[in-house]
Every structure is written in C-alpha cells, then in structure tokens.
Amino acid sequence: MRIARRAGHKRMAWKNGQGLTEEVAAFPAGSDTDSFDWRLSIAHVGADGPFSVFAGIDRTIALLDGAGLALDLPEEKTVELRPDGAPFSFPGDWTISSRNLGGPTIDLNIMTRRGRCTHEMRRLTLAPGETFTAPGTGWAVFNSPATVEANGQEHAIERFEAIALEASESFANRAGTAAEILFVAVSPAA
C-alpha cells in the first residue's frame, strides 16, 4: 500500500491548454501524455469547452465536485455527470465538449492506452468501520477526508488523495463518518 498525497500531485495544463490537471499517478513513471500506458488524474473544469482528443486511449470520468457536467458527444448525444453518479466511459478519440451545470467542476479521469492496459472505475461509500478489499491492482481515490487503518497503522487521508493497492490488500474506514472513494482498477491488456 502506498499513499499519493495531494501535495505531491503533478499539476499541469491540459493537452489543449484550456484547463488544469492534477496527475495522481501515471505509468511508466515520468511518461507524458504521448507515452503513458495509463494515467490517473483530477481535472479542474472552470469553463465550458472542448475535451482534449487522445487517439488510441480509453477514458472513464466521474464527477468529484460541482453541480454537474454535461458532455456533448458525437451523434448529438449528451450525458450528464452528477456528484453521486456513475462513472462514464468513452473512447479518447471522440470529439467531446463539456458544459458546467451551475459553476466550476472537478472530475476524476483514468486513461489507458488501448492494447496495453484496461481499466474499470467504481464509486463506493464506506461506512464507519467498513473494510475495503481491492478486487485487483488499482487506486482508491478519496472524495472525502478519512482516517483509514491498514496493516495495523492509522493514516489521515485528505480529499483527492489516493491509496495504491495490490489485489486483496485492504484498509478500514476508522473515521466516524462515511468515506466516499472511487476505486480505479488497472490491468494489462489481454
């Protein structure tokens, strides 16, 4: 188990220059937007506009903060992301634009390079005392502060921090309140 503290997240402009991203983790280490196998990041969306196009990349996003984010998709379809809603998966090749619904938004993004890796994202709420066991290798990204216990040690976790877990590793929520996490599993492509 390893904790990715928010203070250590790499901050960078979007590929299209129209927003800011906090990179939680990427593989291989030191890779950029043209060379990663996978990349986990938090995007700050301050204004309406186009998404960056990532050819050959599969993406999933989920809203972390804000009233909502509308995604205008190909074929004149629209999907709305909400604070407690399910993650949305789509090919990075798509031309998409977004509209904030009621002010700026923050969302969690996982991107995997097609043919190298696959991913899955799930939103979970852990009750006080509940234990989470990773179903596979991945990251638990916290959308609320929490105190967790793992391997007999307690750790204070701030919002937007993450814990890297191997399959079957676990932690327990020791806070007196529920903790919201998004678990992102990443696997080599078959």
Rank of each mutant, 00 (worst) to 15 (best):
I110R: 08
T131V: 11
A172N: 05
G176Y: 09
H9T: 08
P74E: 03
S170N: 10
R59K: 01
L126S: 09
A172R: 15
F90Y: 09
T131Q: 04
R5Y: 06
E166N: 12
I3W: 07
P104S: 06
A7V: 13
R113A: 02
A175T: 00
S170K: 11
Q153C: 08
G46W: 04
G176T: 04
H119A: 01
D65F: 06
R5H: 01
T177S: 14
G129E: 11
S98C: 14
P128M: 05
G103Y: 14
L20K: 13
G176E: 03
T133E: 13
R2M: 11
M1N: 14
I96G: 02
F88G: 14
V79R: 07
N151E: 09
S89P: 05
T177G: 05
L81G: 12
A86H: 03
R113S: 04
P74I: 03
R5M: 00
N151R: 11
D58I: 14
H155K: 07
T137K: 07
F36E: 00
G68M: 11
F27T: 09
A178V: 00
L81Y: 11
M12F: 04
S41R: 14
C117Q: 15
S97L: 13
G102P: 14
G138M: 09
S168T: 14
F142M: 02
L182Q: 02
L101S: 05
K15S: 13
A127K: 15
R5Q: 07
A156S: 14
H119W: 03
P87I: 06
D37P: 08
D65I: 02
R122Q: 15
A178K: 13
I106H: 08
S35R: 03
L73F: 02
W14P: 12
G138A: 05
T95Q: 13
D58A: 15
S89L: 08
S52H: 07
R159N: 15
D65M: 05
M12I: 13
M111K: 02
E76Q: 12
M121F: 02
A175C: 00
R2F: 12
E120C: 04
P104K: 08
L64R: 01
G19S: 13
S98I: 02
K10I: 05
V184Q: 15
F51V: 01
A140K: 05
R82K: 12
F183D: 03
P128F: 09
P188F: 00
I163Y: 06
R113F: 00
F51T: 01
L81F: 12
I96P: 11
A29Q: 15
G68C: 14
H44N: 03
R39E: 07
N16G: 14
P74K: 04
D65G: 09
A29S: 15
I163D: 00
E149H: 12
K10C: 11
A179M: 04
A179L: 01
E80N: 09
W38V: 02
A43G: 06
R123L: 14
